[in-house]
Design a protein around this nucleic acid. Structure first.
Lengths: 220, 220, 220, 220
DNA sequence: GATGAATGAGAATTCATTCAT
DNA sequence: TATGAATGAATTCTCATTCAT
């Protein structure tokens, strides 16, 4: 009896390592890369799904097998960046034993990432000379929250003075993004200079901050 | 009566209190206010001119008597904000005789403006829980440049140490916008707390910054 | 003072009898007539909005100023027919003093309408040789309900025997539509023959029907 | 083993109980049942092949091993119904020796079928409260023709008076479908009541009909 | 035969803008 | 100037169908 033939009728699923899966993964990357370029060229607002498809050898329908809209593509790009850098940032802070290590480690990692991943950062801030846009996606925002939690932990451990962790996080994020923006515009994109500047500013400033006694860091 | 004359746009001295002028000004404001609301609700990217017109009792054609596109409306909104706050910020810094006055004056003015002009700030940063957007228009960016120039001037006067004015401007802007964002989310929108935090951070940090001797502030 | 000019700013509404209104009404009819022809030619299912627009000198966007979809156009066509014939049918039955007048008046009016309004009826039943479709829109169904109510009234007046008015209405509707269909297929579309047949069938049959005593026609 | 042979479609005598055949039959039924539900839910016009496939555990390509289009699926569903009831209707009429048996047998068989096969009838007439659709497929129409031929035969035998067989067929069909529709809407779906009503109406009416002498039933 | 992603024609719809009134 | 319907290019998106695996 021909088992192959009998089984073939309701076949469960083709091997997930076949050529098909490879093509699928490649197509997804093709779209993401095309979108990155188009966003950088036209700006997020002016980009249409058509533009992205045109920058691709794929058929229009194929786009919709992977993403629902340009928003979804954009988020995928952002999230990819955020997912790559978040663990590094967290790890850097986790192994810090001093305020200096915590702050400089955070800034250095961020600025080096931005300098090395320039095309992504351009997408991140789709800035022409006349209009600057910054979009933070859920994954990015989650990274902000992680920073805050790390700060709360560092305060609890006594590494940081008991300051407003929420505002401090905001200040670090603000300095990081704005300096990155300026750095990216300079002919010499030097992460070390930016890191030195930001670290000095924050370290000098932190000890001058007003202290608070929020419930979670109050003395027993 | 000469109708042609009345219709002619650049009439030498049209009575600014005439009913026609009032209507014209009102229509402009009607559109601007409608746009503010629609931008805040849908976000800039998703908003169409149609949406703005729909939020108005006016006809679609009337829109084009006042603005050419949604971009122009958006800029008008932004510029209105920026134009109102920029002179105040500049004046505050002009009359400062110490670093402390320069910094605290800048932050206080900004945070008080944001706290009092909440709806405009919402338009400026169309933030849901899952996606945060910030757009800087030319007028806003011009305000950044003005800050930098004021910093350069203050450094030249010896008020500030000779630091990287470009990065310092970026840091101030970053801290200001991110803290404003956090402040806006708190149930108690207290500009004083934000001002105290930001001022302490910057004052403490500035003196720790690496000094530079850029051409424009170098000794003769 | 020029009142005309002052008032002109927030003008309430242009005279509804202007050229604009005329064009609007004409465009609506243009679309309806084009749709009628396309439905008759391609059948309802195969027709697309594009097809209707193509059969029109109008721009694609114009269609959507009048209708949302082909379904809406279809309903407008149907309702137009129903609205034209319903009052006639009702009036015919209202002035009937015998069962014979009630029944023959109903059928005659219907068959004459169908014979005279052939293109609408073809749309009504978009029948090829291999697939027959009949769609009843709300207005049509309301006409069925009206017939039932007229029957209930006639029963209450003693004109009809106390039969199941719901089933009788259904029977009349079924005979009317199916005979109309057959009539429409004959080379000689003669409403009189159809009327005679249907009237004889119903008159002969009604007195043989089982009688019922529903609450609303029960003896006091 | 000769694979070619196995794949060849018109194999003389494939074992009808083999596992392959079972799977094939099952897939066909799976599609048909899914289509029935989707048609009933979305209506025929709004249903796409995608919708049917989605309601199935099968792959899209598999669909085309069984049907070419939704039209073909729809016809298969209809034909299934028609093929089941047509022989019964014909047999009922064939064994009738009186008009009463002919008519009551036809209606009873039809109404009992509808009452017992409710889901198919729903597909046949996709009726919401606001839009009612009836579609007759070739097989259904063939059933109408068969009724007409049976009527012609009965007239030739002298069982029926010499009436217009075409119109009489139409009347029977119209009464049958409309009453079935009303019956299906009642809480008590009682075929006996519908049969009694329809039979009484037709029997009473037939003898009142105008007689004709069409060529085919004319005396020699 | 079963699978399901790719295809790309084309259908539905929107939208900024114009212009006769 | 205000009006608002017409325009039609552009965009989004769906869908039946194919075909390599």
């Amino acid at each position: 009896m021909d088992i192959e033939l009998i089984k073939s009728a309701p076949r469960p699923a083709p091997k997930p390592t076949g050529k098909r899966e490879l093509t699928k993964a490649q197509n997804r990357l093709t779209i993401l890369e095309a979108a990155r370029q188009v966003f950088a060229e036209l700006g997020y607002g002016a980009t249409t799904v058509r533009d992205i498809i045109r920058a691709t050898p794929l058929a229009s329908g194929t786009f919709y097998n992977y993403f629902q809209s340009k928003e979804e593509v954009f988020q995928a790009i952002q999230d990819e960046s955020a997912l790559r850098i978040r663990p590094r940032l967290h790890e850097e802070r986790a192994k810090a034993s001093t305020v200096e290590e915590f702050i400089s480690g955070t800034f250095r990692t961020f600025f080096e990432f931005v300098a090395g991943d320039h095309s992504n950062f351009r997408t991140l801030r789709m800035n022409t000379d006349t209009l600057r846009v910054r979009m933070d996606t859920p994954e990015t925002i989650a990274g902000f929250e992680e920073l805050r939690e790390d700060l709360v932990g560092a305060i609890a451990k006594g590494m940081f003075p008991p300051v407003d962790a929420d505002f401090l996080m905001a200040a670090i994020v603000g300095v990081a993004f704005e300096l990155a923006e300026r750095m990216a515009r300079r002919e010499l994109r030097d992460p070390a200079t930016a890191t030195a500047f930001a670290t000095a500013l924050l370290l000098g400033g932190i000890h001058a901050l007003p202290t608070v006694t929020p419930p979670d860091i109050a003395a027993p």
